[in-house]
Amino acid sequence: MSTDKQPLSRAEIMDKMMLATAILIAILAVLYAVSAIEYLVGETLAAYLGMLETGLAVLVLVIALFTVPLLVKKLSLNRQHPSGQPESFFNDIARQSFATSWAVTFLAMVVMDSVTEDFIAGMPVMFTLDLIRAILLGTFGISFFVLNQADSAGAAEQGVCE
């Protein structure tokens, strides 16, 4: 096995971009959940949650502004497979996670509409929007990392087969 550090292939960069996107989505889900919770708690706790919200927003910006453009730059410099996007396991679990999050969010809205109709009707519109966004993005993040983790337990081999 060579110890030389090889440049990342286009496929590896795409995987890293997908992972960075999933992390961003998961943080955004927490941010929206915190924002929704603010409507349910007292002013003191809401103020603390507001600070947490600001911190999460800064984190999202830092990741988005530094990580993603860096990967995009690496991708533009890498001409290994310039035509089309390579297929990958990460793309596959992202597709599965989008489908799961869509279904769960739809079900959650049906439940909100029927079971908690009175409660939702009494809340600000922004609460409902934050809640739906948190469910949509949170389900995606959970699904993505659970599917990724399920694989990590079974496939960790990196070296040359003997």
């Binding site: 292939s9 496929a11 995987d15 990958s88 396991f89 081999e157 990196q158």
Partner: peptide, 10 residues
């Protein structure tokens, strides 16, 4: 032209 993760999961 795929990632190592893709090969390992296949």
């Amino acid at each position: 032209g795929v990632s190592r993760k893709t090969i390992s999961t296949i």
